[in-house]
Structures are given as C-alpha cells and as structure tokens.
Design a protein around this nucleic acid. Sequence first.
DNA 1: TCAATTTGACCGGT
DNA 2: ACCGGTCAAATTGA
Length: 325
Amino acid sequence: MDPPCVYIINELKQGVELAMHLKSILSSESSSETKQILIQEIISSYDRAILMVNWGDSGGQTAPLALAPSTLSQPESSVSINETPRSHDFDQPFDNQQDEKVSSKKRKTMPTWQDQIRISTDNGLEGNTDDGYGWRKYGQKTILGAKFPRSYYRCTYRHAQNCMARKQVQRTDEDPTVFDISYKGQHTCNPTTKPSVQQPESPEKHEVKQHNYQRPLPPKSGEMLSNLKENLRVNTSDLDATSPCAFSFPPASFETIENYHDFNFLQGSPSGSNYFTEWGNDFQHYDDPNLSGRISTTASATNSPLAFPADPQDFSPFNNSGFLI
DNA sequence: TCAATTTGACCGGT
DNA sequence: ACCGGTCAAATTGA
C-alpha cells in the first residue's frame, strides 16, 4: 500500500463523513432515497479504498475472488477487525491444494479458518445465513461444550470447478438465532460456468433467495443484498486493521452506521433499494418475514490470504471490508 | 435419476 | 485418548 495512500485516506475519510451524515439523517426524517444514496456512497468510498489498498499491496495478484462473505457491521456498535484465533492459514490461495493431493480422507494439517462472522436471524433458521454462494453440507459434528452441532459446508462447485472454499456454521449457545460462520479458502468457482444448481446452503432457507438466485457466482452486490435481505444486522468486530486486505465480504446489506466505527460495505451497484428500506430504524422489519433478520458479523480475517482479484470487475461483488478505525 | 443431506467412521493433531 | 474436521455410504427429496 503505497501509491494510493493519500487517496485511500481520502476515501476513508469521505466514508466516515458520509457515515456520520447518514447517522444524523437516520435519526431525522429524511427520505429513504436520500439514505440509500448516502449508503451507496459510503460503500463506494470504502470499496475504492479497499481496491486501492489491495492493488497497492498485492500488486495485481491473481487470486480468485474474495471469499468470505460477510458484510457486516454491528449496528449499534463498532466494527472492528481482528484476527481470529484460527487465522493462520497462509498456505495461501489454497490450503486446498493439500486436499487435492491427498485424495483420500486425510488432512495434513488442521484447517484454520480465515474469516468469522456472526449472523443473527430473526427466525433462527440456518438458512438465513446464506451468503449468496452455493454451499453443500458435508458434515455435522457436535462440539464439545456447545449446545448445538456445527455444520460443515463446501462449495457446491468443488468438484466441478475445483473450488475449495469451505465454511462452518454454528448456532451460538447464548442465542439460538445467532450463527457463527467461519470461512476457509477462497471461491475459485467461475461464475460464468453455470453450474446446474445453485443451492442454498440449507433447504429451509431457500425459498427466500430464489428470486435473486441466478448465480453460481459470487454474489454481486445487488444480489448479495438480496441474499442478505434476511440479515439485517451485521456486526463486524475484530477485524484486523493492520492488514490491508484483510478480508473481503460479499456484499450484503448493512445496517445502521451508528458512528463511523460501524459500517458495512456494500459494493457498488445497489440496485435493490428495498434492502435498505427499514434501515437504521427497524432492522428486523421486512416485508417478507422470511427475509428479516440481522447479521452481526464478527469478521476476523486479518492476515488472511484473501486477495482481491486484479481486475476490479472480478473484485466487485464481494468486497466489503471492515476496518478498525 | 441425480443431487443434496445425514450420519457414522476415519484421520490427524494435541 | 480425545476432539475437530472430512469422507463416503445411505437416505431423502425433487
């Protein structure tokens, strides 16, 4: 991160200002349109900053797209980035390679998860944790000390496209409607090759996303929003600010920006306006009950190998990042 | 019939 | 030996 340092700072500052402006507006009586515009600008601003950081830092790494979906921001709290205990996996782009080599059921090393987010849904369905990617469940385990079992998912296109992205979902003990989701690996599946199916991660949920589900690809910002309609509240916490491209989120909806510490990034084209409808006021309220929910993500991804695509276009959909300001 | 989920077994790290 | 993560056969569903 060198060249664009100044620009990055400017973008971030702008984001902060916009967020603050939005904050004041949220409490006032402004049109939802105005709010949406502000939100979009904030998102765009942060996205640009992220891109800059990324480019400056990884110099056009060809890494696949981002991965971990997560968008988040904690509504009335602050966003922080930190490193999760489990992020050590720097074997880079893919810790997966191991998996491939060792075809049978063996693991050379314990998987380390890169990003962790917390999503809370109103209806408590795991389905609402969908992040827009196609996931296939491959296991479930009871975890010592945890009330609820942990579910393991891999990319639906793992075999078809050799995409080794994985994630695990676990309902929290404290609040059954809240899920801790950890991601590992990057999605390398090619959006252009439409796989036959795009599965939601879990059966239940998916009536919800059907409408905007035409993709096997990383969700585009708009889609993401749709996908996350259900998740209204996003909390990002513990994101490591020290690492520039710490992590990328798939675009999603975000909620209130209580202060500039709280924010979510949404990438670019938010076509969907509904997503923000109740934004900032009543997160849990949606037209479609099934979609309502809130996401509180605790993203911790620092140091993660997550790299952004060299091509801004590829980059788009999912990159949202949280920084500790 | 095919794809996704379930679930017990297996593997490797601690 | 225990535990978390993954595999893969069996089951389920569209």
